[in-house]
Amino acid sequence: MSAPMVDVRGVHKSYGPLEVLRGVDLRVQPGEVTVIIGPSGSGKSTLLRSINHLEKIDRGYVAIDGEFVGYRRSGDRLHELRERDILRRRTQIGFVFQNFHLFPHLTVRENVTEAPISAQRRPRDEVEALATELLEQVGLSDKAGAYPRQLSGGQQQRVAIARALALRPKVVLFDEPTSALDPELVGEVLEVMKALARSGTTMIVVTHEIGFAREVADTVVFMDAGQIIEQGPPGLVLDRPRHDRTRAFLSKVL
């Protein structure tokens, strides 16, 4: 097996007395799409947020392309990095939020170009050209000059995807990207994500869209109570689950 793009090992995370992640191991190969499903409160979102260090983990580690996120290793110790270095490493990871979190005072184009220019210090010409290309890719070329509030939810989420891709990240994390959308707008966002998956982007997606998981995922991961219960190809996990808890969950959502 080649080196994983994302390597999560023995991750524990507590909020006070509440242990939300209880020893999670997950490996994602380059170009693979991993879909995480599970009941609410099972720790899916916390795991995703730990991967780009929006949440600090208590034990274990997360590495992206062989590099620790948020820490520097010397011997057996992990030294927490300073904020500036964490921010720099984060630019290798794209993150798409449930509620988009576009910057409302910036135009669609400025939303996309902001981080590559200010965080990655890439030349403006190159970033502007890339933004044009990405907005075309998500079908919003005509909205480049609009402000986010002038767009529908589905359009806003597609801008958010373009914004994440503009960093040229090694992996893109999606935290329930369609949960805040009206039902008729879900499809357009999933289409963009499917095209992205076909193009070989490494993706980890937390979602309740089982259909999407079946169609696109290389690996489906079922989480419950802070642990991964089972993982495997969608044909196995979704159609012939081995665990009762997976079966119980699937019978409720299908």
Binding site: N52, E83, L87, T91, F95, N99, L102, A115, A119, L167
Partner: peptide, 13 residues
């Protein structure tokens, strides 16, 4: 959420 998005994008403090 605005600050979180900015942090996730790695925008300097």
């Amino acid at each position: 959420g605005q600050l979180e998005a900015a942090a996730a994008l790695g925008i300097p403090r």
